[in-house]
Design a protein around this nucleic acid. Sequence first.
RNA 1: CGGUCUGUAGCUCAGUUGGCAGAGCAGCUGACUCUUAAUCAGCGGGUCCAGGGUUCGAAUCCCUGCAGACCGACCA
Length: 573
Amino acid sequence: MSNIELSEQEIIRRNSLNRLRELGINPYPAEMYNVNATAKEIKEQFDSEKGNFQDVTFAGRIMSRRIMGKASFAGLQDSTGRIQIYVNRDEICPGEDKTLYNEVFKKLLDIGDIIGVKGFVFVTQMGEISIHVKELTVLSKSIRPLPVVKEKDGKVFDAFTDPEQRYRQRYVDLIVNPQVKDVFVNRTKIINTMRELFNERGYLEVETPILQPIPGGAAARPFTTHHNALNIPLYLRIANELYLKRLIVGGFDGVYEFAKDFRNEGMDRTHNPEFTVMEIYVAYKDYHWMMDFTEEMIERVALALHGTTKVQLGDKEIDFKRPFKRVTMYDAIQEYTGIDISGMDEEQLRGVCKDLDIEVDPTMGKGKLIDEIFGEKCEGNYIQPTFIIDYPKEMSPLCKKHRNNPDLTERFELMVNGKELCNAYSELNDPIDQLERFQEQLKLSEKGDDEAMYIDMDFVRSLEYAMPPTSGMGIGIDRLTMLMTDNLSIQDVLLFPQMKPEKKSEGDSDGKFEELGIPTDWVGVIRKMGFTKVEQLKEIKPGKLFNDLCGYNKKNKLGLTNPSADEVKQWVN
RNA sequence: CGGUCUGUAGCUCAGUUGGCAGAGCAGCUGACUCUUAAUCAGCGGGUCCAGGGUUCGAAUCCCUGCAGACCGACCA
């Protein structure tokens, strides 16, 4: 890339980079830099009485600079936060040669560069804990300017807030928006808290296939791929449920997995094509036990993160204190629509949907219709954690029949802030029933429901060897993180959310321009004037191009030799 | 897919009725030895998203397209 296509500030930084090398300073040194203090440690523990931190080695990124002649202040940021450094010319340059201060520090270093400093900690006249620098080392030169975000009295100036740029360039977001880092630290804390609980109970963390020949365990459209050696299609998993239950058959009492699942469906504030789910299966338990366990787990996560069960979410406060309310699905529908749907058949349910202005289509079975009514009229109302229990059989093909009502299943979902957070069953372990349920799904699929489940005969075979009564639960880690960190968008809790590919400027290569006889030096200039394809040159007047090129050369002091008018004419024709 | 809004300097954003393209920060030159959104003096920096139209004249008005945000629809 020629320099012409860089911004002025990028060119200046590249020049600084070269100048550093001329001065014998490696802008990207190989040696390790042995840091012995972090910004956080210094700010929390420094005590001028004790006289600690009198020999610190610190490294960080320059985030701000205030230069006053022979003395300067700068803000350095490391992984724990920011600390101010004080740089005095005659201290970092004790001899006659003041280059390190006058040129390297004041001119060649910029906001964004990473440097190391050695010195001692003190408190400035203004009362800020700072590092008094005695030695300064360039560790990595930045040649692209960083957005500069300033802050005073809690007010942020020139914030870097454009969501697209933040997600596409998460590294920049993390550098300039320190609160973003906290979200991801908390996300990991959530996962660790859950893992600790499971491990305390003796449950085993396992890994199951992501590439699956039959994408089972949920109703969703999968991503498809192909295995060359086997010459078969493979699917990215939409769930890991069927594999974990095989492990319960195999004799493990409790297994769990933090799993990436993939669903080839829409993207919005709460859906990303790949997302993280924790699924856990425990033998000899039922869904009542699992509700208690889920409550305990979530309360523990809230306490680990916030020290309280009350969590702020937007303008709402959510209280994760046990126990959560438990409402059957039929009661929920009765409460919010006034209609008792128990015992209704498919035709009657269709009528109810019509009365309630809910759109339906002929492929929908009984289960799906009830789900629509609930989703449309009830779901959004459950802001505080609430277990919705006892789902209709048709929408839960992997779930055991209810012990008291054969039309229902022993299933619960946990609703928080009007959205599903967890899904759990007393797992179906009757192999004959399971096969029948799969076959019903097949009928739905033939009816046109493209989300109906595939039949996994090996899973059925595993149940034929007998699976102990088991309860299983799945929880969306992204949604849980959103709830626990007060973020309303899934993209804010994923480090690298899926984005449309960045538009790349389509243009012809240098070679194409050079084929016309245009010297390499001038290709950049021509691009700068808006001609990215050789085609475009054919349509303009050579005289105007000649004038523009020479003018640009003069104006920007490029020092190139101007082509003659005839030469330009030849390029264009 | 539909509605609303947005696209201007490296960043955040103004831009009146259609009349020479603006500010703050960042950058550059200089001053300044405890500053903190440092300050002071000076300077440079633009394909006003792209293409077309109206007009003597378009960042501004109209059309088309592109990109993005938000809200719906669809979809777990």
